[in-house]
């Protein structure tokens, strides 16, 4: 047993962090808040860096890595608040032409959720819809051209993630080659990885702010009331990290459910505590804290929310 990152995994994480800092730094993030259309140049660059083809075999032009590596990359995406249907890109790279290379942007919509939401509808070249009426093990995937999908406007709480509500089942053309239960499981895990990245990032933001902000003649981070908030944030993030990384290794369905539950909690609660440490500044539009919180809320609803997760974990206990 060696449950730590390998040297290669650390290099992948660091390289991804550098790429995102260079290509999607704070200026780009804030520009995207005002104009959330996806940057196709950036999308292709992510593809060139192996973002989507990470797990495809090298013979098929992929990078030949595994789920743990994908989790590390998605953790970095979560830290950087990188917008777009990234999970769909990673999961559909081998199934839909042009996704691996970043030429086509495709979103995933889970028909089992209510409302069924579609992220970045204006940027997508296709929508893959997971049938929510069939029992989970028999669910199938369908592919639609965006123009063919019946939708209603939906005012997204997250300024970086425009949404539409899919109003009818988009079950026109079956999309072959997709194992839907596995797709859902991996989508949950990669979403949890993004939550983990966000949770770790808001700890850093809160700590940096608490060191620099002075009140009563001292940095507020020297006060135990603030210090203990920050310590609690780290504990949440580190517990979620252990759960998410372990689920990436085992690929066990229940491990994924538990990891998503803890990562959702870490991302949402850490963003809340970060907002509290920021004080009045945390309540402003200019501070990035609300962007983490709103995205965390969104991701917490997708691919299995708290109620569903806790029920599944309870069933497994009583089994």
């Amino acid at each position: 047993m060696d449950f730590q990152l390998t040297a290669d995994q650390r290099a992948l994480r660091d390289g991804t962090r550098e790429l995102l800092a260079r290509r999607f730094g704070r200026d780009r993030l804030r520009a995207a808040v005002d104009a959330p259309a996806l940057d196709r140049g950036l999308w292709r660059e992510l593809a060139d860096a192996g973002f989507f083809a990470l797990r495809l075999p090298e013979a098929d032009g992929g990078v030949g890595l595994g789920l743990p590596e994908a989790v590390l990359v998605f953790e970095e995406a979560g830290r950087a608040l990188l917008p777009g249907p990234l999970v769909a890109g990673q999961l559909l790279a081998g199934a839909v032409d042009g996704v691996a290379t970043g030429e086509r942007i495709v979103a995933l919509c889970d028909g089992a959720t209510d409302p069924a939401l579609w992220e970045h509808p204006a940027d997508c070249d296709a929508l893959i819809f997971l049938d929510g009426d069939a029992p989970a093990h028999a669910a199938r995937a369908y592919r639609s051209a965006p123009a063919d999908v019946a939708r209603a406007p939906f005012a997204s709480v997250d300024p970086l993630t425009p949404l539409a509500r899919v109003t009818g089942p988009a079950c026109t053309v079956p999309q072959p080659g997709l194992d839907v239960p596995r797709l859902r499981r991996e989508a949950a895990l990669l979403t949890a990885a993004q939550q983990l990245g966000s949770a770790a990032r808001t700890v850093e933001m809160a700590v940096a702010y608490a060191r620099q902000r002075t009140q009563f003649g001292a940095p507020i981070g020297s006060f135990q009331a603030v210090k203990h908030l920050c310590a609690g944030m780290l504990v949440r993030a580190e517990l979620a990290r252990a759960a998410v990384y372990a689920a990436a290794v085992t690929e066990d369905a229940l491990d994924v459910v538990g990891a998503k539950l803890l990562a959702d909690e870490a991302a949402v609660r850490n963003a809340r505590d970060c907002l509290q440490v920021y004080g009045g500044m945390g309540f402003t539009w200019e501070a990035d804290v609300h962007l983490h919180l709103k995205r965390a809320w969104l991701r917490a609803e997708w691919w299995g929310g708290a109620r569903e997760a806790e029920e599944r974990l309870a069933d497994a206990l009583a089994g």
Binding site: L262, E310, L317
Partner: peptide, 26 residues
């Protein structure tokens, strides 16, 4: 049920965190 379900995730993760810390110490 949900209370016990949440504790299931919690203790499963605490076990993983133990393995993480032990590997780090190693």
């Amino acid at each position: 049920r949900r209370r016990l379900g949440r504790l299931n995730a919690e203790f499963a993760a605490l076990w993983r965190l133990t393995q993480w810390n032990v590997s780090e110490a190693q």
